[in-house]
Design a binder for these strands. Structure first.
Lengths: 225, 225
DNA sequence: GGCTAAAGTGTCATGAAGTGACACTTGTCG
DNA sequence: CGACAAGTGTCACTTCATGACACTTTAGCC
């Protein structure tokens, strides 16, 4: 869930000016996320109970649900951050790039950053997320739903870049959903060897290249005149 | 006990030679689906419990779960059938149509059929599904997951049409996911008025048109040389 | 017809997710 | 310090989901 977003200054080494209560809350939240991922990595998503996560941090499971709306939610923190980073990267793209190109570079940039452990999160955890999502139906469903919800924001960002209004123009909607689709296809492609992708960033780049080039391929049965 | 069958069937010679057991099972299943949709329409998806559905058909809730893996599952019967119909329509398209075009016509054809109540299911229920999915997060997640799972099949169908191998060619993956994305974008667009779509089939057609034409629109900031 | 094996179902028990109510503790601020 | 609010624990409860076991119905066979 969206934190109340107090101060966003990770650079401050000293004590945060935001009051003890807020700091403690933040620490508990992070501890829950850490414990959750440790346990997920160890026993899988479905194999881990909320109670175990809460116990590992020494809070009641009731408290867990005061920080996260569901068990999925704690795992999806990640995608939340990635998505935010991606949006920010998108607005940083030069204004004259065509939309798909801009989105492509933004997404690939984030993927590379994740793989290298920049952006503040651990690349292992990034890897872990992919595994978890792949083998828990519940988490997969949650992940898809999350993406779906974020799509509206992406649609607006894309519309802004196109200088159009998403309330009256279907195009940004189709672009946004296709973009997310391409991303998912890429994530999928990673697990299918034979396609020969080592890194997510490579797969994403390839998928977007196809999307940019247009998808209306001829059928096999088409007779060349 | 519990022999109070709601609909007494004429004890005459069964027209179906398929065995009484099988017929009874089928009837129970259909009764569950019917009751579920009736209750969903009345009280919403989240507002309806499995027990209520089971009670309405006079079976135990344990039995409900012998027919459906989850509460979502019973609602998704529908998408299951639509998807199957769509695949079948796709293979019926002329062999020389380019892929996107073929998929577009198949999907639009199914949408029209649904709206008209052909294909054996009730158009009201079709409408109901859209409403339900829109206001239950759980059902939305389930629906998305279902689509995701079916995507693999669509990918193969598209690959077959292109005469290529999905294990070594990324294109059918991207096409399949984009196609599903376009469909979702269309479903979304229906609820956004201002886009001016009355029927799903119209929205789908428009979304596919955009997809076919290519999505890499210029940004507003692009300076025309 | 009657017997048997298996399919289908009900009942009971259990586990885990998620929520509401209420009291207790602790940080914040005057 | 004292009042107030935020955060938390505990308890009770609902719902989804699954496993175990016994009972009933059906199918198949003699």
């Amino acid at each position: 869930m969206t934190a109340t977003a107090p101060e966003a200054h990770p650079a401050g080494p000293g004590p945060h000016p935001a009051g003890r209560r807020e700091r403690k809350k933040q620490r508990t939240r992070e501890a829950l996320v850490d414990a959750a991922f440790r346990l997920f990595a160890e026993k899988g998503f479905d194999g881990t109970t909320v109670e175990e996560i809460a116990d590992a941090v020494d809070v009641s499971s009731r408290t867990f649900f005061r920080y996260f709306a569901s068990k999925e939610d704690v795992a999806l923190t990640f995608q939340e951050e990635q998505h935010a980073a991606m949006l920010s990267a998108l607005t940083d793209r030069p204004a004259d790039e065509p939309v798909l190109t801009a989105v492509r570079r933004a997404v690939v940039g984030i993927a590379v950053a994740c793989e290298r452990g920049d952006l503040g999160f651990d690349p292992d955890r990034f890897e872990c997320m992919m595994t978890l999502t792949a083998d828990s139906d519940n988490l997969m469903a949650g992940s898809l739903e999350h993406a779906q919800k974020k799509q509206a924001i992406l649609t607006r960002a894309i519309a802004a870049r196109m200088g159009t209004d998403p309330a009256t123009d279907l195009r940004p909607h189709v672009v946004a959903s296709s973009v997310i689709a391409a991303f998912h296809a890429a994530a999928d492609a990673l697990t299918t060897d034979g396609l020969g992708f080592e890194r997510l960033s490579d797969a994403v780049d390839a998928a977007f290249e196809l999307l940019e080039a247009g998808l209306n391929y001829p059928s096999e049965g088409a007779r060349p005149e």
